[in-house]
Design a protein around this nucleic acid. Sequence first.
DNA 1: AAGAACTCCTGTTGGC
DNA 2: TGCCAACAGGAGTTCT
Length: 294
Amino acid sequence: MPELPEVETVRRGLEPVLANRRIARLEQRRPDLRFPLPEKFSERLCGRRIETLARRAKYLLAHIEGGETLIMHLGMSGRFTIALQGSSANEPGNFARTQGGDPRHDHVVFHTDGGASVTYNDPRRFGFMVMTSTGGLEDHPLIRQLGPEPLGNTMNADYLAARARSRQADLKAFLMDQRNISGLGNIYVCEALHRAGLSPIRAAACLAKKSGAPTERAERIASAIRAVLNEAIAAGGSSLRDYRQTDGGLGYFQHAFSVYGRAGEACLRQGCRGTVRRTVQAGRSTFHCPACQR
DNA sequence: AAGAACTCCTGTTGGC
DNA sequence: TGCCAACAGGAGTTCT
């Protein structure tokens, strides 16, 4: 569900209430999400200060005083909601349901010494939380294999070409694979490919010349990825079903989609008379315009 | 070793 | 109205 822009929006929402605060109390309402929650979860967090709240790819990283890092992933339906002391947002009723989701799926609640409570809600439980030593974070199995941040300096046409050279997989699968480039998901891959005018079913190897040098297509997809992500972050992410910002508010980038969810509608590219088509790749929906994405 | 299929889980939607 | 299949922003595991 949440891709990089949504996770970054959540990070920005949580940072003011979590960074530099201590965990006063932890409510853990079930033993596991996708994986078991950390051993002695409460003991390892309570009384400790969260030094910083960072993001890597689609992961939130809470660096905890004492040398541990809490790695959190929202899966498909994970959501964080903040309730400040004296607010009624966490009490039963329609208001809470609208803001934070069905309370039956409130699995973990962090209470801070600043009087805020942060609730993790996740109906499908594809999300997870694991703890690891901060020193060994880069070697953690979940982190080690991640490709570069799409908004960082190392993600560029040269990198993509070198990585995609001689790859048989199609472009969409290549960009969805977090080992190649991290943080993209189904929505933003579809949007970036449309912006770049590239077909999702073209072989990834088209990004490189025989020499390994980047093609003009590689330049186009690299800048399209950056542009789409930056615009989506500026819009607070995309709200389709589950996703909400930490104040319960909606992101609004979904109104700026060029292809995602627009099957049968007209292509929005200037001068293109094509119609957006939905196909299925690797069991996931792909939206693209066959007329202008080649 | 790359690539594809299968899997986890709940909720919503659309067709009959 | 009910029932059932398809689908949903992800990605680890297991196969070929």
